[in-house]
């Protein structure tokens, strides 16, 4: 019996555009992401946010908390936009525009670090639960359930209360609210992936359990977690502001912070609504950027879209 001839023909998809390398799912997702206008808008907003945060001191016309115009602030009003102060003066006599730029730094650092922390710890718990069998799963998930049963803001308040009022406490507080989200999500995807045929195939091939979990199950479960992390960045930015608003945020008054700017705007809201408008807008727009990017990522990584 002779071998069948190689079954390739001119129109074969394998001899398509790029003869050297195949298109991995990651690369395909990246390609879809680049073509999605929503993703581009989201990425631009996020990029602007990051650039402002990083180069705040170069971009801002005045130093943070300069209080240069403190004398002009009265009990009922603050100076509005004018030459030299693009958005006017804030409640404590500093340039509102500069304060807004410095505030981005605070939101970004705390938002990113806390989400990363939540992601890493949550993912580790998720991998333990989803990859090490039923008994570990049982124990880990009960811990996660306990974390989940405490309202996230209450949890954050207690953590700040215990650790003291500083930015690290805020990070840990926000992160601990995210841990159960990531843990449950990753565990769920891993367990459903673990039931798939390719995992059965890997077992039958005699691969080690560690290889199967880390090399097969995990990479195929990351998509939803990446999407969730991006979406969580948006909630983290809001939560940073919320904690500050409640007086539980950064304790150092010299650090500009959007949430605290909102608090400061309260008593002069009627006469100077711009005090609340700009930080509020900054929070909303940066959160929107992450949300758009997350939604676009979800679309790009959706396995249904790849066939």
């Amino acid at each position: 019996m002779t071998m069948a001839p190689p079954l390739m023909s001119p129109s074969d998809p394998m001899l398509g555009v790029d003869p050297e390398h195949g298109t991995s799912l990651w690369r395909g997702a990246w390609r879809r992401l680049r073509r999605n206008p929503v993703a581009i808008l989201g990425a631009l907003l996020v990029l602007a946010f990051v650039l402002i945060a990083v180069f705040a001191s170069a971009l801002a016309p005045y130093a943070a908390n300069s209080r240069e115009w403190a004398s002009e602030v009265t009990l009922t009003s603050v100076p509005g936009p004018r030459e030299g102060n693009l958005l006017g003066i804030d409640r404590y006599g500093s340039d509102l525009y500069s304060q807004l730029l410095y505030g981005a730094r605070q939101s970004l650092i705390i938002g990113v670090v806390s989400t990363l922390l939540g992601l890493v710890v949550g993912a580790m718990l998720g991998i333990l639960a989803g990859g090490l069998g039923a008994k570990v799963d049982m124990v880990v998930m009960r811990i996660v359930d306990i974390l989940l049963s405490i309202p996230s803001l209450l949890l954050a308040v207690s953590i700040v209360a215990v650790l003291g009022q500083n930015r690290y406490a805020v990070m840990i507080a926000i992160a601990s609210a995210q841990v159960p989200v990531f843990a449950r999500l990753l565990r769920g995807t891993m367990l459903s992936q673990a039931r798939s045929d390719y995992v059965l195939a890997a077992t039958s091939l005699g691969l080690r359990r560690r290889t199967i979990v880390m090399g097969h199950v995990l990479p195929n479960s990351l998509g939803p977690t990446i999407v969730q992390a991006t979406l969580n960045l948006s909630t983290a930015v809001i939560e940073v502001a919320a904690l500050s608003f409640l007086g539980l945020g950064e304790s150092d008054p010299a650090v500009a912070e959007w949430g605290r700017m909102l608090v400061a705007a309260q008593d002069r809201f009627a006469s100077s609504p711009q005090l609340a408008l700009w930080p509020g807008l900054a929070i909303a727009v940066s959160a929107l950027g992450f949300t758009l990017l997350g939604e676009a990522l979800r679309e790009a990584l959706d396995p249904k879209g790849r066939r």
């Binding site: 019996m1 069948a4 001839p5 079954l7 023909s9 129109s11 074969d12 998809p13």
Partner: peptide
């Protein structure tokens, strides 16, 4: 022996 049709339904002109 079976005589297969070579290629697949995606190989089309």
């Amino acid at each position: 022996p079976l005589k297969p049709i070579p290629g697949s339904p995606t190989d089309v002109l």
